[in-house]
Amino acid sequence: MYRGDYVRWASLYLGSRADAEDAVGEAMVELLGKWPTVLTQEEPAAYAWWLVKNRVKDAARSRSRHQKLADAIFTVTALQEAADPIGELENSLAVWQAIDALPDRQHDVVLMRYSLGLTVPETAAVLGITEATVRSTVRDARRRLRAALDLDTKKGHADDRSEVA
């Protein structure tokens, strides 16, 4: 059901659509082999996400790639039309480093919501968590990111409320 979203996420992580397809394909084969176990899980989608995420991380390690490389490629691509490429690069790298430092669930939710553009219900479904958990995780991640980026915490509170609504 979520293979397309898994591949899009894995492409961000691995920096290659082909590598993402391979890693997610391997995870799907493993998932199929464990299907009776999957069906006994309280949240099968959460189990599937855990399996996919771990297989993608294994693929990154085995291919000697790291997420920061994919992030750098993504950032350079985004800078092509920037008025101040050096300033944009510094800001973008700081943001990506702060996102990379988030706890796993916050990291996953932020990437699903903002890099992949999934809605709250879509993110909840892919990760096998509730919509309320997605909203509260985004709120917590935003607080953590504001602190990590040393942004004025008085600004942006409306952003937190927009995710709750």
Rank of each mutant, 00 (worst) to 15 (best):
E30D: 04
K34M: 01
K34F: 06
K34A: 08
K34Y: 03
W35R: 15
P36H: 07
T37I: 08
V38W: 06
L39D: 00
E42D: 07
E43V: 04
E43A: 14
P44D: 15
Y47H: 03
Y47R: 07
Y47D: 03
Y47E: 07
A48F: 04
A48W: 11
W49N: 03
W50I: 10
V52Y: 11
V52P: 10
N54L: 09
N54F: 14
N54W: 15
R55L: 12
R55W: 02
R55E: 12
V56N: 04
D58M: 11
A59H: 08
A60N: 10
S62C: 06
R63I: 01
Q67F: 01
Q67R: 08
K68V: 13
L69K: 12
L69E: 11
I73R: 02
I73G: 12
I73F: 11
T77F: 14
A78M: 13
A78C: 13
L79R: 10
L79V: 00
L79E: 09
Q80H: 01
A82H: 09
A82W: 01
A83C: 00
A83P: 06
D84E: 03
I86H: 10
G87D: 09
E88T: 15
L89S: 09
L89G: 15
N91T: 09
N91A: 05
L93W: 14
L93G: 03
L93H: 06
L93Q: 08
V95R: 15
W96I: 01
W96H: 10
W96Y: 06
Q97C: 06
Q97A: 05
Q97S: 05
A98G: 00
D104N: 14
D104W: 00
R105M: 08
R105A: 08
Q106Y: 00
Q106S: 00
D108H: 12
V109T: 00
L111D: 03
M112T: 01
Y114D: 06
S115N: 07
S115T: 14
L116P: 13
L116N: 04
L118Y: 09
L118S: 08
T119K: 09
T119A: 14
V120K: 02
E122R: 12
E122I: 05
T123Q: 04
T123E: 06
A124E: 12
A125M: 01
V126S: 10
L127D: 11
L127K: 13
I129T: 12
T130E: 06
E131G: 03
T133V: 04
T133G: 07
T133N: 13
V134H: 12
R135V: 08
S136A: 10
T137K: 00
V138G: 02
V138F: 01
D140E: 02
A141T: 03
R144H: 00
R144Y: 05
R146E: 15
A147Y: 15
A147N: 12
A147S: 15
A148H: 00
A148L: 08
A148T: 07
L149H: 04
D152L: 14
T153L: 04
K154M: 05
K155Q: 05
H157V: 15
A158E: 10
D160T: 15
